[in-house]
Amino acid sequence: MNYPTDLKYSKSHEWVRMEDGVAVIGISDFAQSELGDVVFINLPEVGDDTTAGEPFGDVESVKAVSDLISPVSGSVCAINEELLDAPEKLNENPYGAWIIKVENVGDQEELLDAEAYEKHCAEEKG
């Protein structure tokens, strides 16, 4: 399992990378592995607001659907449209396949560094 150290992670398994005040958000390697084959994704539209700790979309694997939880509040300034047709990219390259970008970032969830997140995953796996 891969936990890049240049990223921050939410306990609900999203990763965040800040780029010039914009939050780039995706799902972690652990998340994609637990989900299994991602076959569908629902994304917000550019301009939609996000609230820290609230869903901004969902991903579906063959067996189940899971909400995508926004680690930050703000407004969506870009969505990765490529994922609509090829959601399997979330499995193939979870840290390359960003999902949304959020600007005007306000509130943030408690975010973990790579080491703490890895520990969190290990605990969750039991």
């Binding site: 299994g36 084959d37 076959v39 694997s61 063959v62 067996k63 399997e88 499995n91």
Partner: peptide, 10 residues
């Protein structure tokens, strides 16, 4: 077994 490492789609 619900799936193997190859996963359901494969």
């Amino acid at each position: 077994p619900i799936k193997y490492p190859s996963d359901i789609v494969a």
